[in-house]
Design a protein around this nucleic acid. Sequence first.
DNA 1: CTTTCTATCCCTTAAAAACAGGATATTTTA
DNA 2: TAAAATATCCTGTTTTTAAGGGATAGAAAG
Lengths: 205, 205
Amino acid sequence: MTTQVFIVDDHYMVIEGIRSLLQLEKSIDWVGHATNAASCLAFLRQQLPDVILMDINLPDKSGIDLCKEVKQLHPSVFVVGLSTFNQQSFIAKMMENGASGYVLKNATKEELLEAIEAAAKGKTYLSDEAAQTLRKNTDADVPVLTRREKEVLILIAEGLTNNEIAEKLFISPATIDTHRKNLLTKFDAKNTASLVKMAMQLQLI
Amino acid sequence: MTTQVFIVDDHYMVIEGIRSLLQLEKSIDWVGHATNAASCLAFLRQQLPDVILMDINLPDKSGIDLCKEVKQLHPSVFVVGLSTFNQQSFIAKMMENGASGYVLKNATKEELLEAIEAAAKGKTYLSDEAAQTLRKNTDADVPVLTRREKEVLILIAEGLTNNEIAEKLFISPATIDTHRKNLLTKFDAKNTASLVKMAMQLQLI
DNA sequence: CTTTCTATCCCTTAAAAACAGGATATTTTA
DNA sequence: TAAAATATCCTGTTTTTAAGGGATAGAAAG
């Protein structure tokens, strides 16, 4: 029995690379590719592969969101995340959204095949590096912000003062001050400068 | 006459993709690949290809630095930058360091071939998107900082106050204040928060 | 050798942020 | 429903920045 594989990646060279890697595998049936989320969803309306290899970075939508949608619309399809970055938050989010595995783009042919086979059987596969990353920082270091706090954080980083933010959000400057205090505490930041730096590093801005 | 091509990229799948793209081209002679800067330099001690396709992101060294080294050691070798990101600063730096071209990883086979052929002839090739990016922000928006300003900027982003920075650098707090003023002016930033954000975005921190 | 750039230092005033305490109403969630 | 989280607001004080001005000495570059 062969496994039908579809790939979504905005990089032509990566698609070509994976196609060439899988070409000679008898157990793999290459059913097509897409370079963005929209055409991936369009394809799925016609045909359902067993496994989708899905890049995290797509032009129209993040792979993380696409994964969620695909699993909602077509629960029988297994998704394997594919990415350059070995970033804990991305991996965790993909898995939360129903992915069956995660493979880095510097993975070997063997790792890739293992991931596809595991996914096809409904099992979970994480490449060694990805698994290691997940184990390291389970969560801990990424502060959980409320909606309001995120709003305020973004406006702070844009260079607005408390008064300007207060006007923009139609609330008292004193409230902004409180949100600021809470942000500094949550990030364990000493002042605005380090707060902004940390938030940028964690890609919260 | 065939063009000898070598590739440096830390992603196995990309190497595989490019190999598969170039395999059938009679004018291209694939001489090998490396997944890091060190083994690329080692290879060049044995054999000199005509063109090197070089990723910007390598595990041991940035492609930008590697490009500079390669051109110093082996001026006859032409380098074509290869990257996921369409970032003006990267492209500009690659070209400054002697690259003959720049291709994005979502380029088509035709673009890639064109770039390799142009490079082999000593000409310059930029993929459409890359050229567009370069034209947009020729320079303008990336402020030129002095060594001292960079130092101060980094310490500001780490959350140090003027007094703390002054102690660390053994200079007067007043001087830090001046550097701060100059940084705000150069970045056209309203305050520290936006300064740090901009500097992070331009990857100066 | 003169001009420009860089790095250094100083003063003043006003604005903004950090810090330390609170308080209260509304959601969420366990 | 009771506890927890969220969002709102307040009064202070102290520290830090921002913005304006100006000055000097050395290095680099024309």
